[in-house]
Amino acid sequence: MSNWREQALALAGIFQAAVLVERLAKTGSAPQDELETGVYSLFQQNPDRTEDVFNGAAQLLPGLRVSRELLQSRRHPEYTDSLRYALSILYLQRQLQKKPDLLSIIGSRLEKAREQAEHFSPTHENVISNLAGIYSDTLSTFRFRIQVLGDFNFLQQQRIANQIRTMLFAGVRAATLWRQLGGRRLHLLFQRKKLLAATEQLIGQLDAAT
């Protein structure tokens, strides 16, 4: 059975995180429920289904809509930075896969962060700060680093910088899922029609359910 539906969900997770990074960097804010979805995904280690990583497919509707736009045509000036972040996230995740020691550190530290999130709340400032710290201590140590562009007044605020790092981290989580489901960067070029069809079907189902 083809898993284009599952790949479409994981890809939407990557795009949703990338758009949040852009929004935070340029406007200093992002929808609370989408931030929660990103944080939630980081704590899901052994999900039964792809959508369980994001607490349900409906949580990915914004990402699915962005995914549809980008799969239909790559000429979307409003998503230039988001697309760059998404491709950078995919590259960074590939580098991470070559570092089993770092993966182990990330896993154990995420477990502690999950306990903290249960005590406070998923998007509590302490939790976001902790997750941003994990990202900085691991993924930010690679030679390749994602350059985030935006308003300096927002980027220099610690709270917003932590949210940005956490959403980049969530993007890497979605990229890991995408790879596990057989997703490849070449699919974005040569399997766009299949991914687009699966994305449109998901959007149709979710719209009908609301």
Rank of each mutant, 00 (worst) to 15 (best):
L9H: 09
A18Y: 07
V39E: 04
F54R: 06
L186S: 13
L186V: 10
F120C: 01
E22A: 10
E111H: 13
S104Y: 13
Q158K: 15
D81F: 09
A25Y: 01
L110I: 08
Q191N: 13
L70K: 08
F54L: 06
Q97E: 15
N55Y: 13
D207H: 11
R114V: 03
Q93W: 08
V21C: 04
A208S: 11
A17M: 03
R145H: 06
I14K: 07
T166C: 02
I89R: 14
D151E: 10
G150L: 04
L155M: 00
Y91F: 15
R145S: 06
A17E: 01
Q97M: 14
A18Q: 06
Q16Y: 12
I105Y: 13
M1C: 09
L139Y: 05
W4H: 09
R23Q: 15
L188H: 05
G150C: 04
R185I: 13
L195P: 02
S140K: 11
L188G: 08
P31G: 01
Y135W: 14
E78L: 14
Y135G: 04
L155I: 00
R74F: 04
A10H: 03
Y135F: 15
R5N: 09
P122V: 01
G204S: 07
L24A: 04
K98E: 10
L71V: 04
Q32D: 05
Y85L: 07
G63Q: 11
L96A: 08
R173M: 08
A86H: 03
T199Y: 09
L149Q: 13
G183H: 10
T141R: 14
R185M: 11
R65E: 14
T141L: 10
V127Q: 07
Q163E: 00
G204C: 01
Q157W: 00
N153C: 00
H119E: 00
N162I: 00
H76V: 08
R94K: 14
F169R: 09
